[in-house]
Design a protein around this nucleic acid. Structure first.
Length: 697
DNA sequence: ATTGTCAAGCG
DNA sequence: CGCTTGAC
């Protein structure tokens, strides 16, 4: 739900661009002979002609609609051309449509701030262009203010859907009231669901304008402070939503459903499909991250199941996440492990309710994996490309041919960036890649008080430093959080330990570390520890064994020169097998500025115990500036390999002639086909003022 | 048997 | 985070 915000300080002019029957247009561009013919795009042909996901306007006249089956469409429109969505990895592949959407964004971003809202939708803030145009055309302020395209994203989106296809709609401020007075409440962006239902049934609100009769406090009482004020505002055509400058997706995900009889009933099937999905995800990550100098941190698995349980608790199949490791094999195996963990939780949760067969009958009806937490890598830092291309051997060490010498020890690495500034508002993310264990580690940290921690993994590592929060540029500031997540994944045979969401805290010069530990295989039955410096909270019952390991505060004397170190280890044992020893962790807290060193060490496990030891260093690092921060999202024209400049011959004359006249004129002008008069937006206002444009009222 | 992807809010 | 909702 949108959060109530202070009113925008100035009037903005915002356009919402929505491509008509987008997939159809993409196909028609590929095959121009399809233009003018009834055309639809279907995915998956085998079952009843496939499902229609896009319908051209010619076909709509025959009554063909979205979500029809291909066979039904043929029935009402025998001449319809049905194009199949490409298939890759055994599933529908939308790449070409995403890329086509990127072309559109690239073109539009030359005109103003773009926010890519979906595969075929863009918000465009053209305030500056309008003002410039108005000045050039010597429009008065009055004219400009009464002829805006939309005062907000909300109005712009509303308007863009009003005259389809191939038409523009202006929303002058003077028509807002009238427009909202007859706009059905459920048409509004956030009101298509339950909230809209409630407004209708509880408040008898039919049109958005009907909300005007309720006071702000009344709405707040009914729907909460935020939703209430939001409702009050939209009734008046006000919205705090601004166009967020973002042309790249915040995450990537791919999934597939396995409806009815297609459901997956054993792990082998699940593994197969996860592998397919992983391949697609890897491909998409590789292109996006390499091209755009970005990095992703989180892998998430999401699955849906149906099972033999009849009535009782319809527990949802849980989602799981871990640190993203690159490469299709790693993504596939990590995702599969996440699935096993989720399945384990799921079965344990549902065990309470008896089932007829007595065995755990489950069937996966959907699988979904995604990569998120994507960050821009600052310029001057090695690109993510190296994660994909470089062989995992020390000889090809990440930093070898770069300014830093190789191999890189953590201290060496840290010293390459000397302290230069007293500005400590920076936070850093570092990603480490261990060449030997072939694992990656990502940690985030934050400046606390006067010091900034950098999370680093010992041993031979690849390093990336990312500065997602630029202290120098306002628009790079991320929201404040009290704590930051830290994930780590380590494998050993079939055991996976994933401490998730550890929090580092530095309170009054003391640091403590908290980690949540899971055993995905449900065998971590006993967590033992003799170190008084640790606190365990063991969770019981059928859930995944879980413990919170907390290190008591370690003194951080910032004035001393030797780093205090806290090492601790814990061990979890299985009752039966020694090789099931699940976890021995060894953590160090190191403050490079301190000279006092504290060490807490647990006895190493007895001989024969197989164990894994890891030490993490927490270093208090200096303030440092990475020169030349890269913006999170620079325009695709610079960043994207899709550098689309359209050529005149690419514009189909037939399509041009189908457009409304004033748009034709505008296009011709901007392409320099006919006349060479400039200032297109001003002309558009003029034509609108003369009554030739479409308008909302 | 409405697919596959997104973003965003909530606890 | 993990879950839900809404939207295209």
């Amino acid at each position: 739900m949108p959060v109530a915000r202070p009113e925008p300080s100035e009037v903005r002019v915002i356009a919402h661009v929505d491509l008509d029957c987008f997939y159809v247009q993409v196909e028609q561009r590929k095959r121009p002979e399809l233009r003018g013919k009834p055309t639809g795009v279907v995915q998956y042909n085998p079952w009843r002609g496939g499902g229609l996901i896009a319908v051209g306007y010619e076909a709509r006249q025959f009554g063909v609609t979205r979500n029809m089956r291909g066979d039904e469409a043929k029935k009402v429109c025998p001449n319809i051309e049905l194009i199949q969505v490409p298939v890759a990895h055994g599933k529908a592949d939308l790449t070409q449509y995403r890329d086509a959407g990127s072309e559109v964004v690239a073109v539009l971003s030359r005109k103003g701030t773009c926010e890519r809202a979906s595969i075929d939708e863009v918000y465009l803030d053209i305030t500056d262009a309008c003002v410039a145009s108005a000045l050039e055309e010597q429009f008065s302020d009055d004219v400009l203010k009464s002829h805006v395209l939309g005062l907000s994203e909300m109005l712009a989106k509303l308007a863009s859907g009003m005259h389809k296809p191939a038409q523009q709609t202006l929303v002058p401020s003077s028509s807002v009231t009238k427009l909202l007075a007859t706009l059905p409440i459920k048409k509004m962006k956030q009101l298509g669901g339950k909230l809209g239902d409630s407004l209708q049934s509880d408040l008898r609100v039919v049109f958005v304008g009907d909300l005007l009769q309720f006071s702000e406090s009344k709405l707040q009482n009914l729907y909460g402070i935020n939703t209430g004020t939001w409702l009050w505002n939209i009734a008046r055509g006000l919205s705090g939503d601004e166009v967020k400058p973002r042309t790249l997706p915040k995450s990537h995900s791919c999934g597939k459903t396995f409806p009815g009889p297609k459901s997956l009933k054993n792990l082998a099937e699940v593994k197969h499909w996860i592998t397919e999905l992983a391949m697609e995800l890897q491909e998409r990550l590789e292109t996006d991250l390499c091209q755009n100098h970005r990095m992703a941190h989180l892998l998430t698995l999401h699955a849906g199941t149906s099972q033999g349980y009849k009535t009782n608790s319809d527990n949802k199949f849980p989602s799981k996440s871990c640190v993203l490791r690159y490469g299709k094999e790693k993504i596939a195996s990590d995702a599969f492990k996440l699935f096993e963990r989720a399945l384990s939780d799921y079965l344990a949760q549902n065990k309470a309710s008896p089932i007829k067969g007595g065995s755990g009958i489950w069937a996966v009806t959907s699988l979904f994996i995604g990569a998120s937490n994507i960050w821009a890598i600052p310029s001057g830092v090695n690109p993510i490309t190296q994660f994909f291309s470089a062989p995992a051997s020390p000889e090809n060490s990440f930093l070898k041919d770069k300014e830093c010498s190789s191999p890189v020890s953590p201290s060496n690495f840290l010293n390459t960036e000397p302290s230069t500034s007293s500005d400590n508002k920076c936070a850093y993310i570092e990603m480490c890649y261990d060449l030997r264990s072939d694992t990656s580690f990502a940690g985030t940290c934050k400046d606390v008080g006067t010091s900034t921690f950098l999370v680093s993994k010992c041993e031979e590592t690849k390093h990336l430093i990312v500065d997602p929060y630029s202290s120098t540029s306002d628009h790079n500031v991320i929201e404040e959080k009290d704590t930051f997540p830290m994930d780590y994944m380590q494998e050993s045979d079939d055991i996976t330990c994933t401490p998730t969401f550890g929090d580092f805290m530095n309170v009054n010069g003391q640091a403590s570390l908290k980690l949540d530990v899971f055993d995905p295989c449900h065998r971590l039955l006993d967590l033992s520890n003799t170190d008084s410096n640790l606190e365990f909270k063991e969770q019981t019952s059928l859930e995944t064994p879980q413990a919170v390991i907390q290190c008591s505060p370690v003194d951080l004397d910032l004035s001393s020169s030797e780093p205090p170190t806290a090492e601790f280890a814990c061990q979890a044992t299985n009752e039966s097998q020694i090789r099931d020893t699940a976890l021995v962790s060894n953590y160090k807290l190191i403050n490079t500025d301190g000279n006092e060193s504290q060490t807490r060490r647990k006895e190493l496990p007895a001989e024969g115990d197989q164990q894994m030891c890891h030490s993490w260093k927490l270093r208090d690092i200096w303030d440092r500036k990475l020169s030349g921060h890269k913006q999170c999202d620079t325009p695709p024209s610079k960043q994207n390999q899709y550098l689309w400049g359209y050529k005149q011959e690419d514009i189909d004359a037939q399509i041009l002639s189908e457009l409304p006249e004033e748009i034709q004129e505008e296009l011709c002008r901007s392409l320099g086909i006919k006349r060479s008069k400039k200032s297109t937006i001003g002309d558009f206002f003029k034509s609108y003022a003369q009554g030739t444009g479409s308008r909302a009222d």
